[in-house]
């Protein structure tokens, strides 16, 4: 009886010390699945922005796992610094750099993916064998005592950082300053020529050979607004530079000479009518107005 009770207590304490409760078990399986899915999605997704979102998912799930393991401070830092700051920096740089050919998943080295897959399986097997061999069944002491020794988890970490790890902490400050200065030095571009003032810009704009205003757009006055149709100038000639350069080079610019002739005639005829109008209301116009009033019911 006594032996049985002893056995029971041994089993209860277990070979693992602190046994994770059901809540933690469920949390682990949910978050571990999502974290692995996020990692796989990051490696396998074609677009870099999708990779960034997948790794953000992984990091948030890891933060939950930290908190589940009594590392409250690290969990919060993980969410704020990693998911909040670092990943946003990644997305920001992605926006600056944009999408280029390196996003494609086409193999440039023959057999690279197969070899990488073999290396992945081999490395994973090696790691798992080592981890399971070394730590399976090792009792977990748990952090109850360590977390409550100084009050809370944050205070415990603070006490360690500012006593035993003080030197490392100071070196960290130097590292961060160096990183900030390094980033500024790396992204700084020296101006190779002095900044242009407004008079200089204006002189440049009206220099000979430059077009100070918008060029005519194709198809203006030509009864056809196709890109290949040159615009007509007021004298009926065609404006060559109204057709986009590539079309002109390819010889796709259409001839507008015949049209231009017809258009010029049309314009001149129309002009004759409209030029007459501004000289006051003629008798015909009053007639029209009178007839309009009459026809009104």
């Amino acid at each position: 009886m006594n032996a049985l009770a002893n056995l029971g207590s041994v089993v209860a304490a277990g070979p693992i010390g602190v046994e994770p409760d059901t809540g933690e078990t469920v949390t682990f399986w949910v978050c571990a699945t999502l974290a692995v899915l996020g990692g796989l999605g990051m490696v396998l997704s074609r677009k870099a922005v999708h990779s960034a979102l997948f790794i953000a998912l992984t990091m948030i799930n890891l933060a939950v796992l930290y908190i589940a393991q009594d590392a409250l401070f690290l969990g919060m830092v993980q969410i704020i610094v990693y998911t909040g700051a670092v990943m946003m920096l990644f997305v920001f740089v992605l926006m600056v750099v944009g999408v280029d050919a390196s996003d494609s998943l086409v193999e440039t080295l023959k057999g690279q993916r197969l070899l990488a897959g073999i290396a992945f399986v081999g490395f994973l097997g090696l790691l798992l064998a080592g981890v399971v061999e070394a730590f399976d069944g090792v009792p977990f002491v748990g952090l109850e005592a360590a977390n409550t020794a100084q009050g809370t988890n944050v205070e415990g970490i603070g006490a360690l950082i500012f006593t035993r790890y003080l030197l490392a902490f100071e070196v960290t400050a130097a590292l961060l300053i160096t990183a900030a200065v390094g980033a500024m030095v790396l992204t700084h571009r020296e101006r190779v020529e002095p900044r242009k003032s407004q008079p200089e810009l204006s002189t440049e704009r009206f220099a000979p050979g430059r077009h100070p205003v918008n060029k005519p757009s194709p198809g203006v006055y030509a009864r056809n607004n196709a890109v290949s149709m040159p615009a007509l100038l007021p004298d009926g000639s065609t404006a060559e530079d109204s057709v986009p350069g590539p079309l002109r080079v390819r010889g796709d610019a259409r001839e507008a000479d015949l049209l231009a002739l017809a258009e010029a005639e049309h314009l001149s005829a129309h002009e004759a009518v409209t030029v007459d109008d501004p000289y006051g209301p003629g008798p015909g116009q009053t007639d029209r107005q009178a007839s309009g009033e009459e026809s009104r019911p």
Binding site: I16, G39, L65, L127, V131
Partner: peptide, 15 residues
């Protein structure tokens, strides 16, 4: 659950 699972997850993510 065996708490060593956390180390297994860590190994998987690292790989």
């Amino acid at each position: 659950m065996n708490p060593t699972n956390y180390l297994v997850l860590s190994a998987i993510l690292f790989s």
